[in-house]
Nucleic acid binder design. Sequence first.
DNA 1: CAATGAGGTCACGAGGTCAG
DNA 2: CTGACCTCGTGACCTCATTG
Lengths: 573, 573
Amino acid sequence: MSSRSTRNVKVFEKSSGGGKVSTSLTACRKLRGVARTRLVAGGQPAPSRAARASAATVRGEPLRREVVASDARALAMDVWSAGAACARAPAPLTPAPTSPHFALAFFPGAGAGAHPPPHRTQVQAAEGGGAAAGAGGAGRAAVPCRVCGDKASGYHYGVTSCEGCKGFFRRSIQKQIEYRCLRDGKCHVIRLNRNRCQFCPFKKCLAVGMSRDSVRYGRVPKRSREGETMPEPVRTHNEAGVGEVAAAGATPGSAAPAAESIAAMPGGARSETTPEPGDGDGDADAGLEAEADVEAEGGGEEPAQELARVVLAAHCNNNTYTDELRRSLHNHSIIVLDDSDNEASGGEAASLWHRLAARMTPHVHEVVGFAKRLPGFYSLPQDDQLILIKMGFFEVWLTRAARLSTPARLVFDDGTAFTHRHLEILYDHEFAGAALAYVAALRRLRASEQELALLTAGLLLSPQRAPLAARDLVARLHRALDDALRHLVSSLTDWLGVHTQAREGRAAAFAAAARSARALGRRHHELLWWPRAHWRRLALPALFAEVFDIPKAEEDNDAPLARLDTHNSLSHD
Amino acid sequence: MSSRSTRNVKVFEKSSGGGKVSTSLTACRKLRGVARTRLVAGGQPAPSRAARASAATVRGEPLRREVVASDARALAMDVWSAGAACARAPAPLTPAPTSPHFALAFFPGAGAGAHPPPHRTQVQAAEGGGAAAGAGGAGRAAVPCRVCGDKASGYHYGVTSCEGCKGFFRRSIQKQIEYRCLRDGKCHVIRLNRNRCQFCPFKKCLAVGMSRDSVRYGRVPKRSREGETMPEPVRTHNEAGVGEVAAAGATPGSAAPAAESIAAMPGGARSETTPEPGDGDGDADAGLEAEADVEAEGGGEEPAQELARVVLAAHCNNNTYTDELRRSLHNHSIIVLDDSDNEASGGEAASLWHRLAARMTPHVHEVVGFAKRLPGFYSLPQDDQLILIKMGFFEVWLTRAARLSTPARLVFDDGTAFTHRHLEILYDHEFAGAALAYVAALRRLRASEQELALLTAGLLLSPQRAPLAARDLVARLHRALDDALRHLVSSLTDWLGVHTQAREGRAAAFAAAARSARALGRRHHELLWWPRAHWRRLALPALFAEVFDIPKAEEDNDAPLARLDTHNSLSHD
DNA sequence: CAATGAGGTCACGAGGTCAG
DNA sequence: CTGACCTCGTGACCTCATTG
């Protein structure tokens, strides 16, 4: 069967719907692992493409690295288990209906019995040398699945993963299966035992950032193909325009954290399972490097700048409300929700809550990812981490959303907008006004990416949150962030030749913004009484419900996150 | 054969007949693997290029396929859909997949993944200057794709668009794929979710003016590089009898069924079948986006200009009464119908009706194509679409024909002319005079192509047409067109340094022309009593009869205009 | 020639399939 | 149920025709 005949078959099939063609595949397939590219290349007229292709296609053979991975993990665990353990037990003041699982979902490390290793250093050192950085060759070792460590087959649902986890995740989502762990919900997910339990692996999938929304279609963007690992435009130092420059540099990674780096993910933190970014480093986001640096030594730079850099990276890699998105939305219509469907007692409110939840929920992931990459966050007790996220989410989200919004409406990343009226229905008149005012004020500030990063980080790490077990630590972290922000502002305005007063003014403005945000956050939590009261009828997305402590469908109190992002268009009854 | 018949979840449908795709997916499914499996034997999965290529390259014969959503339930997690679409059982954990039947019946559609915010091409942006809204002229970073907002890579098919939308549109046209929306056909198309649905993005493509006929070779006219000015969609090529030449060298395909129905047209589009019985009028929608509200901060074009651009594109691509044609006709003799053959009671009239129909019918295609590309037209209920076309056709046609005509005769594109006397025979004395007067008035206006486009668009989208279900929407659309025309007129006259009065005068003149046209249209429909009464003897062209609601030869009385929707208007020829 | 857009190419990932 | 494998739509790039 020559290629031609195959073609014909194809054609034929194409038109009628048959399912063949594979014939020729068989032939090719045999050779594949060896040098399929080569073959193909030979026949192709375009040399350049062939070259590119081969470089891209040829992948090492399945390489068993579990051992390595395990080892690394074990190491990390040892180092951290102590602290983690301590932290977890004592916290008696859990917020509302916090289910341990919620925590687990976000902090897979805990599930494994230890905290994720903030110190990637060791791991990376060990791994990095061997794989990526190594000899200049393009020889990249098999990339590990971020969920189970098996050999990844590609980038699926936003995460470098294997066929198994990919399929598992797909099925879970499609069929909306609810899982439950027979054990303690802390199974360690690795290839060897990933089928023992479904709940834990699924949880892990989510934890590492799998989401149907994190799809990357089409061929991989840039290179990352070429052999040499060109040290990305790593900004060695913070120059005057730090904020801007950094933003520019890191944004591509953030808008597409997923796409760009095979290693990095929006979900943020890498879990203990994946010891290292593998090849991803080449185009891995600067953020990782920054973080690594910090942990490693943090030498050279000023602490404040260093912190700012890390926070910026965390921000850029976990935020989809980018300027770019704003720009693209500007050129299109903003869709104001229609008020068509509703009426009935609270019908409209219910509808709005659904809409709101649908658009807000995806960002929970981002904020969590962001939090996880904030220096020191990991060292907090688990419960504190949860509290901070639950209490700070709205504030951070609103602050980010301000970028797309206008004084008249809150605009989401899909272009839909909530007007004052909508907010009024959801919350109340005062709140609606206050929220929009906050947004407007923030916009007037024209905060840079760097400033936003520090501001939101500060909102998240607020020591005055209710019952924090490690309030002192949080306070310390917060102060550091605050200093960094002030430092940044003054250095910037300084650079711009602004008077001291103006400088102070800007710093004060940020402080005021933070206060406003926190006030809004508090009020927001109070106003959640409505959805809490109507939770049964609302059936909001699980994750949304979790963050805001809204009771959710009774049945599975165990597998809360199972439905994560499986938000659904609910019933209108 | 069996192997052929089993494909995926895709169901194929032969061209015409508004075939429904209701065939069961399930049925097809099981068989499939059998035929295929064995190939696997070989070994590794080789993305055999040969196979791939054939699949991609071959332009199969015209084959219409309906891509059906593989899993309707997938939308469960749709975060983007505003209104929850299918209300599934309230039970949150229903693992039960929606019955395929259900899915097909209501939400047959393309299942697709989501698009993440992945990669952002390395934008050289680098500068963080304030977002000077608008006129800055200075280096405007990345121009956005008019379809999805992504970074545009150029001007494709008549629209500034990105590689993705460009490729998507090309494939859609080449393969003549029929899409369906899983939801309500109102998905907001943006980069982030453009892959979730195919129907809506395609609709959007058409809505913003994409057309294969809008080819523009060579470098872009002048500026427009950033400034966004609408350069006349050059209509470079347009062979003689253009009508709608079978563009695409592709589709050497078999004999394409001569689309003899209002349905088929190049501007082609598919309309959403299954108009929700409930809210036929549907509110705003994608099509509207073109003229929908634009965020206050201003961004891209003025809504009016945007609308004008789209309408102009639609006009230029669906009108053979061009200036060029006028010029070429000038160099030849206008053929005045001779009165030789006739006599007999009405003999002459019958003959004239035939001649008229023969020359007018081809333009039905054009007007339909034009209508289909008017922003918002798609969102109208099917019945309204039909009504508007039926009622507006004559007016639009006459307005267009004015270009070739003279105060004494109506000239068709083949050079034949109908004098007052002819018209008198066909209609009546008053009408003949009025029609010629209208033509004369219009000629005196010396309307530009852009003005003509907006004028005719306004004629088509007249809210006062009889029983429109979505009269409000039509009214809105009409107002937008009206505004655009007024805006155009004033800006133009302004530019020419004309006095305000003259400006007003011109705007008023167009308004008057529109009124005249509509009056003529109404009268024309009344005067159709004659051909309606003599339909049996006349045996006029089906399409002609269809537009004017004249009984026609028995054949298919069933699906007269019904074919409008089911038809894939993209088939050329 | 350079610029530009149509169209082709083909790696890539979603999602389906079906032995195991 | 799992997961290796398959098909196909996607979209970043590439080639080529056209035009200033």
